Simulated scan of single mutants.
Amino acid sequence: MSPRPNAAQGTPRTATIPALVRTRVRAAVRRPARLTREEAEARTLTLRLCSLLLQYPDAELTASRAVLDSTVAALPPSPAAKHLASFTAWFTGQEPDALERHYVETFDLRRRSSLYLTYYLHGDTRRRGMALLTLAQRYRAAGWDTDGSELPDHLPVVLEFAALAGPGGGEAPLRQHRRGLELIHRALTDADSPYRHVLAALLTLLPPASEADRAAVARLVAEGPPNEDVGLDPYGSDGSNGLYGDGEFAPPGTFTPPMPAPPTRVPPAPTLHTEGPR
């Protein structure tokens, strides 16, 4: 009988085992666990709540705060539900004009907490335009047509698609842009914005951040997203435009297109069931 090869010698078969294991582990992490009907309904409702709560607090949304609060309270106990309850406790206690000011200051005037996800991955480069097109094509392929009033990478739009299309393909854009979501959460936490609770709720639904994710977020914090001159007036990091602070990222609204449209209105809050998922 031939001697068994030792570990130092190795064989083509044993050499491939670690790579095979890593591949299967990564696939298992990316693939959501099979959910019960009740868990799936709670997850869908949580995603839709996150979408609604991250939209501009116009008169329709602020008028629905009591419904939103009771809907969150009826969610099954979970880390996401706890985070959302912390947010709605603040949200329902603020004056509408104060909510509007806080939203604009948080998401429109602070570059690091922009809600346009492809910016964090592609920055001021031509690749961002292709990423937006790819995302729009994903929506159409799934049979979902947005009204076009907002860019396809606006986080409330991405969240609504995830709620409609389900944990597999529907949540793929969220997983793809996890590092951007981490950065937004960090920026909101640093600014002590209550919106950090909504991002925290969302992150509990995604696979845990890897060491590579954390390293990439640290690089984004230090360096900002990729940058190249695409023929538009660039926003530097010196604050010379008079609106933004030193070291902040250029806002997505300066790229494609220069001015974002008003927030997409997804199914209004009053349609949510206050008794929670069944």
Rank of each mutant, 00 (worst) to 15 (best):
E150H: 00
D213G: 03
L68C: 03
D69E: 15
R219L: 14
A27T: 11
L272H: 06
L206C: 11
G129V: 03
L121T: 12
A200D: 10
P152Y: 02
P257Y: 12
A172T: 14
A73F: 00
A66G: 11
T118G: 07
Q55I: 05
L183V: 01
S149A: 14
R178K: 15
R22P: 01
F161Y: 03
L52N: 00
R43K: 15
L61T: 08
R140E: 15
R186I: 02
A142Y: 07
P173Y: 04
R278K: 13
G129P: 04
F91P: 06
W90A: 03
A28F: 12
A40I: 07
H83C: 11
R101D: 14
S51K: 00
R278L: 12
D124I: 00
R111L: 07
R31E: 15
T11A: 14
N6M: 08
D233H: 12
L151Y: 06
Y119A: 00
A165L: 10
R127Y: 12
P57A: 04
S210Y: 01
F255H: 06
T14N: 05
L151V: 11
Y103H: 15
G166D: 02
G166N: 03
A250M: 13
A73W: 04
C50D: 06
A59E: 15
T274I: 13
R4N: 12
E38T: 13
V157W: 06
P267H: 10
E150G: 03
I17C: 01
R22F: 08
R30C: 07
S149D: 11
L84D: 09
A85H: 03
G253S: 15
A191T: 07
F107L: 11
V158D: 02
Q176D: 13
Y235E: 02
P262Q: 08
Q9F: 12
W144I: 14
R24V: 15
N6A: 13
P57C: 02
A63N: 13
T16G: 11
T134N: 14
P226E: 05
N241E: 15
G236Y: 12
L159T: 01
R179L: 10
G236F: 04
T11L: 13
T254R: 01
N6H: 13
S86R: 09
Y244P: 00
T16W: 13
Y244V: 10
P3T: 14
M1R: 12
G253P: 01
L49K: 04
E100R: 15
P267M: 02
F255P: 02
L272T: 07
G169T: 13
